[in-house]
Design a protein around this nucleic acid. Sequence first.
DNA 1: CTCCTCATGGGCAGAACTACCCATCGAAGT
DNA 2: ACTTCGATGGGTAGTTCTGCCCATGAGGAG
Lengths: 223, 223
Amino acid sequence: MNLTHIKRIRVLLADDHQIVREGLKALLERDKGIEIVGETADGVSTVRFAKKYLPDVVVMDITMPNLNGIEATQQITDEIPDVRVVVLSMYLDKHFVAKMLRAGARGYLRKDCASEELAKAISVVAANRFYISPELGIDFQKDVFVASEIPNFVAFALLTPKEREVLQLIAEGKTSKEIAFRLNVSAKTIDKHRAHIMEKLDIHSIAELTKFAIREGITSIEK
Amino acid sequence: MNLTHIKRIRVLLADDHQIVREGLKALLERDKGIEIVGETADGVSTVRFAKKYLPDVVVMDITMPNLNGIEATQQITDEIPDVRVVVLSMYLDKHFVAKMLRAGARGYLRKDCASEELAKAISVVAANRFYISPELGIDFQKDVFVASEIPNFVAFALLTPKEREVLQLIAEGKTSKEIAFRLNVSAKTIDKHRAHIMEKLDIHSIAELTKFAIREGITSIEK
DNA sequence: CTCCTCATGGGCAGAACTACCCATCGAAGT
DNA sequence: ACTTCGATGGGTAGTTCTGCCCATGAGGAG
C-alpha cells in the first residue's frame, strides 16, 4: 500500500530568494504527492516554523541570513528529529556535503538539478532514507563518517555553536551591540565570544574573520 | 493598439542552474503575454541562441560559465540591439547595476523579487523602456525615456585607483596605520580614503567592505 | 580662469574593537 | 567528587574605526 496516495508529504521551503521559493513551489505543486505548507527566508524563522508546524521535509538552502542552513539543519534535526532536511545547494564540495550530512541532513542536491530529482529526493527522504545526488560522487562511508580531519572543517572542529552564530553576525557587519541585542545577552559577552573566536583561529581583524566565515560557508558573500 | 495582445513576448532564459530556469519558466508561462522560446546555461550559448532566434527579451543571470552575464549582455546588445536584456541578479550593488547598464541591459532586478515584478519588467523592457527595481534606489526610474543619457549617469566613477588600492589592503585585514606605512602617506589619509569608499558604496562596516572587495575581485578569499 | 575631482593631511569626538584582568554557573566527562 | 568547557558578564586600557569639521595643491574639463 502506497501511503503517498493517502497522505501528501508536507514540505517547507527555506531559501532567502523569494523567486527561487516561488519557482520551487510552482514546480513541486505539480506533484500530487507533495504539499507546500510554508516558506521561510532565514534560518531562525525556518527553525521556528519547523517546530511549530512539523513539516515532513524541509528543503533547505545553505546561505541564509540570521542562521545559516547548516546551523538551522543542526537545530532542527537535534530538536525535532522527525523532520527531514533536504539540502539544495550550489556547493558540491565533498567537505560541504559531509558537513551538512553531519548536521543531520538526509538529502543533498545541487541547485542545478531537475525538478523530478528534487521531487524524488523529497519522497525518498520522507521515507526515512537518504538521497545524495549521484553526480556528487560521494562515498558515504569514506567521505562522511571517516572525515573528522577534513581541512575545510575548521569552524565546526574549533568553534562552539554559539561562536559560529556570533561569527556569522560579525561577518554580516553587525556590531557587538547589535548582536548582543539580537541574542539577548550583554555586549560584553559578544566581545568575549569574538575574542575567543579570534584566539582559536589566530585571526586578528574583522576583515580576515569575514573571509574565514565565507570560506567555511558560515556567511554568504552576498550582501 | 496594444500589440502584446496579438504577439506574445518571446523570452530566452539564461541561468546556469537548471532548477532556477525551470522555476522561472513555470512562473512566466502563467502569463499569457509571455512565451519562453529557449533556455541556456552559459554565456556563449546564450549569445549564440540570441543571434539565431532573436528573442524579444533575454532574462540573464550574472554568474554563468564560459562567458559571464556582463560580457554576454555586452555582446548581445552590441550585435543585436533589438534584443533587450533583463538582469536577474543576487547583487544589488550600485557598482554592479552600473556595470550591467553600461553593458546595455535594459532591466535590473534582484533575485529576491516577486514573479509579478519579473513579468512586469519583461513587458516594460520589451516596450523599449527601462525597468530598474525600485528597491535598488537608483534615481532614473522616472527618466526612462532619456535612455541615451544612462551611460553618463553611471559614468560617475565609484572608486578611484587609489581607493581600490586602499580597499584591497583593508580587506586583507590591515589597519590604517599599516596601510599608511606601506603607501608612504599619513594614517589620516587612509582614514579619509576609507570614509570615501564607504560613503560611495553605502557600506558601514569592515565586514561588508571585505565582502564587496571579494565580489569585485579586489581581494582574494584566501588567507 | 573657474570649477571639479583626486589625493593629501590635521583636529576632534564618539563608537567600536582588541586585549588583558576578573568572576559565576551549569553541563558534561573522568 | 573533580575537572573541563561553554556561556555568561564586569572592569580597564589602548587602539582602531567612523564621522564630522577644516584645509592645500595638482590636474583636468568646461
